[in-house]
């Protein structure tokens, strides 16, 4: 029984990720016929980086939707997508990245492939992790707002030049069955393919490099990690600062010091390995919460 519970605890995140990706991309006909779902459900954003050009996608990508509204002639700010990001961030924070993002799932699966020597951090990690904020400000906000065509419309710069999710979830399945799209391939496709392959190769070496260094959605949700309903707290009376949480963390976060680091994707591994069960989800802690808790 104990073994069964341990097995469930160990694999539950993977099953939630698979189930959520399958349900939110459940328009199977799209994959078979090389076209995308055109229902009204696409007014609603999905929480993760889920390209709306994925043939199966039943909802919209929040980053794509954000740029679509910003780039429209009549709007220079989007209340709807900003509100959505604030709502999801305030409730879940980066829990979304760890449990509900299909591109995160892909990276998790690739990271399981044995590789020469896994590294917890890439060289320059301290600075590289701020790159996602640059991507957010520049490619998701500033460029779509300021670089306009003759009709006064902006482009989705992040989707166009960076997003690897669009390539994996949108381009590859569509191009596999849609011959007319294949005829239109050019330099942009080559650029995005090279970037995708680079990210996937890096994923074999280090854990979730895209989430850590480039994802604008992770950058936004990370800002909410400290206050979100789904946040961690460490019981200072129980914690012995043994460091097992940090050792088990693929992002190398010192959970006993900063349980709500903006990099934490709430995978829960630190909680599972803590020998004294000092780490808990704040919203579940209830009466157990004592003084001396660390919740930074």
């Amino acid at each position: 029984m104990v073994d069964k519970i341990r097995w469930i605890k160990k694999h539950i995140r993977l099953w939630v990720q698979i189930l959520f990706a399958a349900v939110s991309n459940g328009y199977v006909r799209g994959f078979l016929e090389g076209r995308i779902y055109r229902g009204k459900g696409k007014m609603i954003c999905l929480p993760g980086l889920n390209c709306y050009s994925c043939p199966g996608a039943l909802g919209s990508c929040p980053v794509g939707a954000f740029q679509a509204v910003l780039g429209a002639r009549n709007f220079k700010v989007t209340f709807y997508v900003t509100g959505f990001l604030i709502f999801v961030g305030a409730v879940f924070g980066r829990f979304v990245c760890g449990w509900l993002c299909p591109f995160g799932l892909l990276q998790d699966l690739l990271y399981k492939i044995p590789f020469i020597k896994k590294r917890k951090r890439l060289p320059g990690d301290f600075w590289l992790k701020y790159l996602k904020y640059v991507v957010l400000v520049l490619f998701v906000i500033v460029l779509p707002l300021t670089v306009l065509d003759v009709a006064g419309q902006g482009q989705p710069w992040f989707c166009k030049y960076i997003c690897p999710s669009g390539m994996v979830m949108g381009a590859l399945p569509l191009l596999a069955v849609n011959t007319s799209l294949r005829a239109a391939l050019g330099w942009l496709f080559t650029w995005k393919m090279v970037l995708l392959l680079l990210i996937l190769l890096l994923t074999l070496w280090t854990y979730r490099p895209f989430c850590r260094y480039l994802c604008p959605l992770g950058a936004v949700y990370g800002l909410f990690n400290r206050i979100s309903v789904f946040r961690y707290q460490v019981d200072g009376e129980k914690c012995t600062k043994c460091g097992q949480c940090q050792t088990s963390c693929d992002f190398d976060i010192a959970v006993y010091e900063t349980p709500n680091s903006s990099e934490c994707i709430r995978c829960g591994r630190c909680k599972n390995v803590c020998p004294v069960s000092a780490i808990s989800m704040a919203c579940k802690a209830g009466e157990k919460k004592e003084k001396n808790t660390v919740s930074l």
Partner: peptide
């Protein structure tokens, strides 16, 4: 289909 997203 978002042409930018799929690199076209």
């Amino acid at each position: 289909i978002c042409m930018e997203c799929i690199g076209l």
